[in-house]
């Protein structure tokens, strides 16, 4: 397969996942905004969401003030924001369009129609807040539709691996970032850890990654606790948004590529090591290392794997 084809497949899936993450992030913001704003810890919630999306600086260049409506519009529809939902879907479509014949008609139609329907869902900033839940629902539905057509209609060949890898590189990065943000931005001070606000925010975060119910199922009706959350979001193989799950997927699909092409790269070795390490971890050990330190090095390691993977398959430079 042409390197460009692999790259286009990878990025289209990655942008779709990103649109999904953004929608979930906005959902958190929306839920927080429904709670009376009495505690100090909530005042910056929209700013934190902006921060998590990684677009805070760009936003502030365009808008002087932090405004709920403006942030929502910026994250959903702003054409100047290269990672707004609109641009994510647009970029995903452009990537797929260039390799039209590498995906099935169903996948193309799902991506193409999402792109065209997006305009219909555009709102101005005024009515945006009111209709936000509807828009978020629509985005999640489209993403699931696209992902479903990929799973059900694509041949399970190397192209499929690149698509899936796009999804999980993005998800690993996003989950790691959102857990990190939880601690260093959402909470005003470390004293809050374990308090009511803390638990409330953890539950919001779980919702944002669509894992609230799953968590309840996995740990029974028990109260949310710090170690359980760490276990669930980082180490639980049954949670599709946990870090270990993404690492396992990346490891698996890089392994498949390596078998398929009968070549290995240093990305295989590194991800294998990451998987082995994360399997042997437990929540206490992570607390010992420090959650922030752990996440920081996790993000760095995943980036390293990506760089090697990119050099090998997209740039044709030996690794």
């Amino acid at each position: 397969m042409l390197s460009r084809t692999a790259e286009n497949l990878f990025w289209s899936a990655r942008y779709i996942e990103r649109a999904d993450s953004l929608a979930r992030l906005l959902e958190v913001g929306y839920r927080i905004s429904l709670i009376p704003n009495t505690e100090r810890g909530y005042t910056n919630e929209w700013e934190s969401i902006l921060e998590t999306s990684g677009t805070r600086n760009e936003y502030l260049k365009k808008h002087k003030t932090i405004s709920k409506e403006k942030i929502i519009f910026y994250l959903l529809f702003e054409s100047e924001n290269s990672s707004s939902v609109k641009n994510c879907i647009k970029t995903a479509r452009e990537n797929i369009r260039m390799v039209r014949t590498a995906v099935t008609l169903e996948v193309w139609n799902a991506v193409n129609s999402s792109y065209h329907e997006l305009d219909k869902n555009m709102r101005d900033t005024k009515s945006l807040l009111k209709e936000l839940p509807e828009i978020i629902e629509w985005i999640k539905k489209q993403v699931n539709l696209i992902r479903g057509t990929i799973l059900n209609t694509q041949l399970i060949n190397d192209g499929y691996d690149f698509l899936i890898l796009g999804t999980y590189f993005e998800r690993a990065d996003f989950t790691a970032r959102i857990i990190n943000v939880k601690y260093f931005i959402l909470l005003p001070s470390i004293n809050y850890v374990g308090g009511d606000i803390d638990n409330f925010q953890w539950s919001l975060m779980l919702r944002s990654i669509s894992s609230f119910r799953a968590f309840k199922w996995a740990y029974g009706g028990q109260e949310i606790s710090y170690t359980k959350i760490i276990d669930f979001l980082i180490l639980n193989m049954t949670c599709p948004r946990s870090l270990i799950f993404s690492v396992e997927k990346i490891n698996h699909h890089l392994g498949r590529l390596s078998k398929f092409y009968k070549q290995t790269s240093s990305s295989n070795k590194k991800i294998g090591l990451m998987y082995k390490n994360i399997k042997n971890l437990n929540a206490d050990k992570i607390t010992e290392i420090g959650l922030h330190e752990f996440l920081k090095s996790f993000i760095e390691e995943i980036n390293f794997v990506y760089k090697k993977f990119e050099q090998k398959y997209f740039f044709g430079l030996e690794t």
């Binding site: 042409l2 460009r4 044709g316 030996e318």
Partner: peptide
């Protein structure tokens, strides 16, 4: 292919693929 998919090395023209 597009232009960026091809390159020339030691006078030989190649395309970049996932196999090299």
């Amino acid at each position: 292919v597009q232009g960026t998919d091809l390159f020339v090395d030691e006078s030989i023209t190649y395309m970049k693929t996932t196999r090299g």
